[in-house]
Amino acid sequence: SEIVVAMYDFQATEAHDLRLERGQEYIILEKNDLHWWRARDKYGSEGYIPSNYVTGKK
């Protein structure tokens, strides 16, 4: 599975969105859409994140 790191904070506005915290790692579950990826955080929460807010883990 692909691990990404959040470059920016993202506040979830929709129920299906996942909040991003800058510097935290997330697991990508689905990339069915170019701009919104389904991800899981370290607490096990899942939701959609803006793909341009994250970068591949170095």
Rank of each mutant, 00 (worst) to 15 (best):
G56R: 12
G47A: 02
L34W: 09
E46F: 04
H16F: 11
K42G: 06
H35N: 12
S45W: 09
G23Q: 04
R38W: 15
S1M: 15
G44Y: 03
D9T: 06
S45F: 13
W36H: 06
T55R: 12
L18E: 00
V54W: 03
G23H: 06
P50M: 05
E2Y: 12
G44F: 03
H16L: 09
K57P: 10
V5Y: 09
A15N: 10
A15E: 14
K57R: 10
W36A: 04
V54A: 02
G44P: 00
H35D: 10
S45P: 01
L20Y: 01
S51W: 05
T13C: 14
E21T: 09
Y8W: 12
E2T: 09
L34I: 12
A6R: 01
Y43E: 09
V5H: 04
Y53K: 07
I3P: 03
I27L: 13
L20Q: 01
N32W: 09
K57A: 10
V4M: 11
G23T: 04
A15F: 10
D17F: 15
T13P: 10
E21G: 02
E46K: 04
R22T: 10
D33L: 08
D9P: 05
F10M: 07
R19I: 09
N52S: 14
W37G: 00
E14Y: 13
I27A: 07
M7F: 06
I49K: 00
E46D: 04
Q24L: 08
K58Q: 14
K58D: 15
V4Q: 04
E25I: 09
D33M: 08
D9H: 07
V54L: 05
R22V: 12
A15K: 13
I3C: 09
R22E: 09
E46L: 03
I3G: 03
R22K: 14
N32R: 12
A39S: 03
S51L: 05
Q11V: 14
Y26D: 00
W36N: 06
V54I: 06
E2P: 08
D9Q: 04
N32C: 15
G23L: 05
F10H: 07
V54N: 03
D41P: 01
Q11D: 13
W36G: 06
Y8N: 06
R22F: 09
A39I: 04
E30Q: 09
S51F: 06
Y53C: 12
N52H: 13
H35P: 05
Y43M: 08
N52W: 13
